[in-house]
């Protein structure tokens, strides 16, 4: 990802900054300019607490060039406690440990590098919460 685009999204990538619609209460991640549920443009900032559960997952065996050395790796759709969903990697686990609704916690990790500029780009991945 090119650096202007990456830099613009640092609040979401580093801090999971989201927004809540003041009219209907829907939480958006990433933030939007207009609520798709009620068309309101009035929002307040919220931070996602970083806890959620796995709704579905896959193990990527054939990866894009940038992620080739990491394959196989797990990608999941995670539903956060606040109700929003996101797509991310699940790391530090065997795929066999994953289960429907498995609780996860978001951790700050390196995601990829911009090939030409060698800029290391960060974001969140999920880890299983083991009781």
């Amino acid at each position: 990802m090119k650096s202007p685009q990456y830099t613009r999204e640092i609040p979401q990538r580093y801090r999971l900054e989201a927004q809540k619609c003041k009219q209907c209460g829907k939480i958006h991640f990433p933030p939007r300019l207009i609520c798709d549920a009620c068309q309101s443009r009035d929002f307040e900032d919220v931070h996602l607490a970083g806890k959620g559960r796995v709704l579905t997952w896959t193990v990527i065996h054939v990866a894009p060039a940038k992620f080739d050395l990491e394959a196989p790796y797990v990608i999941a759709i995670v539903e956060m406690e606040e109700g929003v969903r996101l797509t991310c990697q699940v790391v530090d686990c065997n795929p066999e440990e994953l289960a429907l609704n498995a609780p996860v916690e978001m951790v700050f990790r390196r995601i990829q590098e911009d090939g030409q500029a060698d800029i290391i780009q960060y974001g969140h991945k999920a880890v299983l919460q083991r009781e």
């Binding site: 579905t56 896959t58 990527i60 054939v62 894009p64 992620f67 797509t87 991945k125």
Partner: peptide, 15 residues
């Protein structure tokens, strides 16, 4: 918000 994290098209349909 999808591809950035390393998901592919087969990966999305696998989900």
């Amino acid at each position: 918000y999808e591809v950035y994290h390393g998901v592919t098209f087969p990966g999305l349909y696998a989900l």
